[in-house]
């Protein structure tokens, strides 16, 4: 479904992504883990077509963005970091706007809207202005907008940042359910998030994919020392550069 091949992204002389390779299928939740500045958001932005890579290819169902950007981008639902939304719009108006962007038919919009309202518990804020929403609701509206067109790939950048524990659990449950039939790709720097959610963990450091693993494997590798120690060892070592 999603295939990233030899991806390189540079900002002037700085290499943000250095030959990243991986592939993923529906039914997986992939957590992109890494310290700040590791290249997580850059990788996500390249996949979503916001940033143009210097070299390498990204395929969604064997199509690249250059082949047919409309088809490529309509397969993706994306919520950027900090959930940028149009504050002056009401939640319902915003979701209506999104349905127009993805050319949803009226019936599909109503059906999908009911589903996202129910799953993300946003019925109470539908008529509220986005600028007046709490961080938790704002995040949920952002996710609602990302999944309204039922994308094959849901990509969320730091989705639980700033949420209270109850909100985190609600969101996690939703993501686990969504991942049963779709690919969910999230970025985080929180280890417990990766552990609770992921079927697969990709660890990025200095733009390189240094590990492609699972939470279970990481626990075994960490032994008694805990995941934090292992993460520190992986991201601050002398010379861990290749994908294991």
């Amino acid at each position: 479904m999603l295939e990233v091949k030899n991806l390189v992204k540079k900002f002037d002389d700085f290499t943000a992504l250095d030959n990243v390779n991986f592939s993923a299928e529906a039914g997986e939740i992939i957590t992109l883990l890494g310290p700040n500045g590791a290249g997580k958001s850059t990788l996500i932005r390249c996949i979503c077509g916001y940033l143009k890579q210097n070299s390498g290819n990204i395929y969604i169902n064997k199509n690249t963005l250059e082949d047919n950007f409309e088809k490529y981008l309509s397969k993706i639902g994306y919520m950027p970091e900090n959930t940028p939304l149009y504050g002056e719009m009401k939640v319902f108006e915003y979701l209506q706007f999104i349905s127009g962007i993805y050319k949803l038919k009226k019936d599909d919009f109503v059906q999908n809207l009911q589903l996202v309202i129910e799953k993300l518990e946003i019925s109470s804020v539908l008529k509220q202005k986005i600028s007046t929403l709490s961080k938790g609701y704002r995040r949920r509206v952002g996710i609602a907008a990302a999944i309204l067109h039922k994308p094959d790939i849901l990509i969320l950048d730091e989705p639980t940042e700033g949420l209270d524990p109850n909100q985190k659990i609600t969101l996690r449950n939703f993501l686990i359910e969504y991942s049963k039939t779709h690919l969910v790709f999230i970025s985080t720097h929180l280890l417990e998030e990766a552990e609770a959610l992921s079927s697969r963990i990709l660890i990025l450091n200095h733009g390189k994919l240094i590990k492609d693993t699972t939470a279970k494997e990481m626990k075994i590798e960490a032994q008694d020392k805990g995941l934090s120690d292992l993460f520190y060892k992986l991201t601050n070592p002398d010379g861990v550069t290749n994908v294991e």
Partner: peptide, 14 residues
């Protein structure tokens, strides 16, 4: 300024 450009440019619209 609001960061919404990132949403806008990842929509399937040329």
């Amino acid at each position: 300024k609001n960061g919404t450009v990132e949403n806008l440019l990842t929509f399937p619209v040329s």
